[in-house]
Write a protein that binds this DNA or RNA. Structure first.
Lengths: 270, 270
DNA sequence: CGTGCCAGGTGCCGT
DNA sequence: ACGGCACTTGGCACG
């Protein structure tokens, strides 16, 4: 097979493990992107312990040393190691190739043993400076609520965001128009029983500290159980419409409020 | 570049988007593994909403249709779509290539727009039947139980390990807090009817020798049938939590009880 | 199907 | 370092 016009990519194939190992070592040294497709078995030991019997897999070593072992199906990697680990590669038998990644803390070892390497792909000079921005998530909802508490309740004033009670943090500590204390938890998805319990924990903790306080759970929706439980515990439910919220946000942006810079602070870079 | 000895892998390169698109379409049709490395931007909209500006990325489409967009660094994919979505590919401009994955429920769209494709790798006939097991092996389990019998039952004291009764060996002979005799069998995998029967044999043998004894079967899980049978035979079931066990195991390892570094005895060169 | 619950969760940010 | 908390969490078990 003749391959031309190869940009930013090198390829190594064949059954000579020495040569493949050299290619891989070089890629690791230079912190290039590395993709290996081949037949391998994988052992992991650390917080958990696993064995993956032999099969065809795709193994990716990223520029920061993250290792991902992917089966040909499924969203999640079957095994992995974060970038903080140290990677070594060695030739075991005639055609055997072993990649080991050791993480210091927690002590974890990932070992990939290749019986057969179909292809080694090295990406060099890859540059990814593209900014990643997540638009609608809980963070943004909270930003909007902070700006516009009336969306939650008429006359509400936010006192503090990420308010600490004991060991916990609640999204908002606010005061209602009667000047009573309110704790508010915001969920960007349908609230389940867990969300209600979470807020109730905060309320209990606050009451233990002699705060006279009620709770409001703000969410795009409530499960039947969550609604019943909230009712029973005296927690107010506020259902918000994300589209409406979003419209509000667009409106604000159009009016050129400069504080909205924070909306685009791209908190989730990778 | 001349590439020989290519097993289970096809490669396509070059700047002709039509040809690349055809290769990709074919791979998708045949449900082959597909890896594309190139410069692209990505939009996602569904439960959340994101935009990823242009950069070099590795895009994987698995045999079940899962799509993963990985940046050159970081453990997690920056964008993704699970296998249940429908994928389409089309040529947009002279060299532009667009991959769109639409998920029905929840309604989510992922769009990857390539400005430049460095390489397309197709893996065909990849077979991965290797079993994946997450486990603690029986030896470790027994070590931990010996150290911490309360994991099995409050007030339990191990009298003897690998206790012989007639021709049989049972994992543990213990006494409970009422000082009654207990025989314990440990399984590192889901216990079936066979495990229950095995322990019952020991109990019968012990009763034949006039021991007044009850049995406890310790396992990470029980089949429905095994649970029923154990109930009928008066054998207590103790289901242990692998995570708890892992923690214990890690702890033991950290205290240097048993250096697992033999895992790693071969000195590595790199 | 939805709802609840676990994960080697990971990542972020705080003390 | 450890702890709380969100995540397009994904995944499985279960009513």
């Amino acid at each position: 097979m003749v391959v031309d016009d190869l940009k930013k990519i090198d390829i190594a194939t064949g059954s000579e493990a020495d040569k493949l190992a050299a290619t891989i070592k070089n890629a690791l040294d230079k912190k290039h992107l590395l993709v290996i497709i081949g037949r391998c078995s994988v052992d992991y030991e650390g917080r958990g312990k696993s064995r993956l019997e032999s099969g065809d897999r795709i193994v990716i070593v990223k520029q920061d040393g993250s290792v991902l072992v992917h089966r040909p199906v499924g969203f999640a990697p079957v095994n992995w190691q974060p970038g903080s680990a140290r990677i070594t590669i060695r030739v075991t038998g005639g055609r055997g190739l072993e990649l080991v990644s050791v993480r210091a803390s927690p002590r974890e070892i990932l070992r990939v043993v290749f019986e057969d390497v179909y292809i080694v792909i090295v990406g060099f000079g890859l540059s990814d400076a593209g900014e990643f921005t997540m638009y609608v998530d809980e963070e943004e909802l909270k930003n909007i609520i902070e700006k516009e508490p009336s969306l939650v309740e008429e006359g509400l004033r936010i006192v503090e965001r990420e308010y600490r009670i004991g060991d916990f943090y609640v999204d908002f500590y606010a005061k209602d128009k009667m000047n009573n204390d309110v704790l508010i938890e915001v969920k960007d998805e349908k609230a389940g029983v867990g969300s209600v319990v979470q807020l109730y924990k905060y309320l209990l903790e606050a009451q233990r500290r002699n705060m006279k306080v009620r709770g409001i759970l703000v969410s795009v929706g409530f499960s039947r159980e969550a609604a019943m439980l909230a009712e029973k515990l005296g927690i107010k439910r506020v259902e918000i419409n994300p589209k409406e919220i979003y419209a509000k946000y667009i409106e604000e942006k159009r009016t050129g409020e400069k504080s909205l810079e924070r909306f685009f602070s791209g908190k989730n870079d990778n």
